[in-house]
């Protein structure tokens, strides 16, 4: 059976733990709980829109070091909307053990993933009740050379609640010549609606593929060229139906003729097959993370009507 979800229930706050409990309070919303422990920090700026709260999930030093664990749970009550953002991209540094090893040249050859230190792991669990809504719109994750990162996100929605889930990753610090040079990026997004799992999106990027003679070795960079940013966007629930419909219409209007070189940005969308509540999955690939961000900002633009222009601009600076 699936064991990931049960491990997410933290009775009290652990190292790097966080809890958000948001519910409707008259015309506005109130936090019954908003707490976090090092290295996670949750900040909620004052916003003027009714029924909506914004939370920034920050980490001290702006990044996660190898072995760091972050466990965040958020409960969103009916009538409440939570916009969860990050400040700057989530930077994942290489694992501690590997850092020591990298100073030792001879160890490089024996360096295998299971011999490295614990990967950085971020777990987030969301529960959205009634007609509540979640807008999870972080900056992309950037894994540095040799970093290992697991991200496990579970979303439990009532029939009638809605969620925008953005999950994206860049190829690393291009300015330092890093291009898909991390050792592991694992991302799981599990979406449940009314007790039924409607999507389990598992993406694993690792550069562990060995050379298979006589074939040329295919590195992660080779396999993903020419792109340096991949985004997955999951849209679920009644609030997102106009967005889903617009994206589907724009998608169906695309006509692909034979090309000799790849486009700078490409995207796709697929409906999520489900009996209860419809949703869609959008994937975007771009040569530059900035271009992907612009595309997302334009495509989701009319969500400004839902969460307000000010908050929308916080999400897509």
């Amino acid at each position: 059976m699936d064991t990931t979800s049960s491990q997410l229930l933290i009775p009290k706050i652990n190292l790097g733990g966080g809890r958000i409990v948001l519910s409707k309070d008259g015309p506005s919303v109130a936090f019954a709980e908003l707490s976090s422990t090092y290295p996670l920090k949750l900040l909620s700026p004052h916003v003027t829109e009714d029924g909506i709260a914004v939370v920034y999930a920050l980490t001290y030093g702006g990044g996660l070091v190898g072995g760091d664990q972050v466990n965040l749970t958020a409960t969103i009550g009916s009538g409440a909307t939570l916009v969860l953002l990050s400040q700057g991209s989530t930077k994942v540094f290489k694992t501690r053990l590997d850092q020591r090893k990298s100073s030792n040249v001879s160890a490089r050859h024996t360096s295998r993933p299971q011999e490295r230190g614990e990967p950085t792991t971020q777990r987030m669990e969301f529960e959205i009740s009634g007609d509540g809504a979640l807008f999870l719109l972080p900056e992309p994750v950037t894994c540095f050379r040799a970093a290992a990162y697991n991200q496990i996100q579970t979303f439990r929605l009532d029939i009638g609640s809605s969620a925008v889930i953005l999950d994206w990753v860049t190829s690393g610090r291009k300015s330092l010549g890093e291009e898909w040079d991390f050792s592991r990026y694992y991302s799981l997004n599990e979406v449940w609606v009314g007790g039924t799992r409607i999507a389990k999106d598992v993406m694993l990027l690792d550069d562990q593929s060995a050379t298979i003679p006589p074939l040329p070795r295919r590195t992660l960079r080779d396999k993903l060229a020419p792109y340096s940013c991949f985004a997955t966007l999951i849209l679920v629930g009644p609030l997102l139906q106009p967005t889903i419909a617009r994206i589907a219409t724009a998608y169906e209007a695309i006509v692909v003729f034979k090309r000799t070189t790849p486009e700078d940005l490409i995207w796709s969308t697929s409906p999520i097959p489900a009996d209860c509540g419809s949703g869609s999955v959008v994937r975007v690939a771009g040569k530059e993370p900035e271009a992907v961000k612009r595309w997302l900002k334009d495509t989701l633009g009319h969500l400004e009507d839902v969460i307000g222009t000010d908050i929308y601009r916080r999400a897509f600076l």
């Binding site: 694992y186 598992v202 995207w267 796709s268 994937r283």
Partner: peptide, 22 residues
């Protein structure tokens, strides 16, 4: 599941395959 479970490991191929009908 994180180490021994099924996973999509080629997002570019996934995206291009989904664009087939275009």
């Amino acid at each position: 599941d994180m180490n021994d479970g099924p996973a999509m490991i080629w997002p570019l191929g996934e995206l291009l395959a989904a664009r087939h009908d275009l």
